[in-house]
Amino acid sequence: MSVFSRGFRGRRQEGPPGRVPPGQYLVDDFPVLSAGPTPETPVEEWTFTITGDVDAPRQWSWEEFLALPSETITTDIHCVTRWSKLDTVWEGVSVDTLLEGVDTSAEYVLAFCDGGYTTNLPLEDVTDGKAWVAVSYDGEPLEAEHGAPARLLVPHLYLWKSAKWIRGLQLLAEDESGFWEALGYHDRGDPWQEQRHWGD
């Protein structure tokens, strides 16, 4: 049973039906959350790598990465700290494109990043048009604190899965906890099921 808060009304900015997951509120700005200093890797030194359980690792330089076919993605995003932002617009390369022709029996991926951040995902959560490596937000290159030069975008899961400052994907046969997943956050992070923490 709920505990009622005397005199509390709230703002009731509940958003369009079916767009705001339970326990979330809408923001217009774009809050920044990260566990350490913002890494600043010059694009000349940046590469993106597909590694792990693959026939042959793949790597792109920044220039090569920008030459890949990209897509514009308009999507809602949901942070475990309870804010959601609707209709965000990104430009990025589909993970399907990055994995095209890769021969693997892996069922999981671990995204790895500058600064040491990692996050784990089932392969099926990043394929079939569900995930991108984004290089721009709202028509502009990503800002440093939002993951420049590139971040993962997996909008159907809580935003800690959309790893900032991404440098590659490691394909894995077995699931391996990423940074927050080892520190109490849910392994999968589906906002519609409120999978925030261990046991949710």
Binding site: V32, S34, E40, G116
Partner: peptide, 28 residues
């Protein structure tokens, strides 16, 4: 946090020893 953590890294502090928590007026 951006300014301070960035300055610490420039001053030679190991980024792995710097833990950050950022907040902003996100209630708008």
């Amino acid at each position: 946090v951006e300014k301070v953590a960035g300055s610490l890294v420039q001053l030679g502090y190991d980024p792995r020893t710097i833990r950050t928590e950022r907040f902003g007026p996100t209630g708008r």
